[in-house]
Design a binder for these strands. Sequence first.
DNA 1: TTCTGGATCGACT
DNA 2: GTCGATCCAGAAA
Length: 199
Amino acid sequence: MTKLKPKYYQNPDVIFLAQDLLGKILFTQKNGEITAGIITETEAYFGEEDKASHAYGGKRTLRTEAMFQTGGFSYIYLCYGIHHLFNIVVSHKNDPKSVLVRAVEPFEGLSVIESRRRRSACDKTISSGPGSVCKALGIDMTFNKKPLTGEEIWIEDSGLQYSQDDITSTPRIGVAYAREHAALPLRFYLKNNRYISKK
DNA sequence: TTCTGGATCGACT
DNA sequence: GTCGATCCAGAAA
């Protein structure tokens, strides 16, 4: 397995990347403990034109600043005052596209993940849903704006390849306010995996 | 300074 | 299926 390179993330085709990232492995290292999960579900946010994106209209604030960085950095924010959500920033500088990781399948450090989530790794709710992914992998705001090629958080290519037949696409979750962009099929998940937020 | 609402989860019915 | 938790960023003023 090899760590994905900066070049991989600089691709401006966020819809391709949201699908290509399925099957890749997201690692974190915290307090010397390494945990990882196979990415099973993602959503694409296509930038300034996307009414569902925090960067819609080129809105640039302290929070959204992370998305305007060069592809290959993390964008993490707090949702509903409770949950952290993890995004992979892609494309080039000042093009705020990102991929939201919505679910992973536990891969490494299972006992650490189980104690963080207080349930068995066999329970599919352990890391299905964007808030759960962050909790399972120990991701909080200290991971915001980090390079995904470093030693705290990174993604490896497992070599797994999927065809369009293996991937289901649906509208994104929780973005009804995005009006005409709410129905776009920009959510992707592995058809045959049980670690999915909802079918 | 104050107000509003959200890229959700889990407990409970 | 329904609903409360919980708090910060962004907008209004």
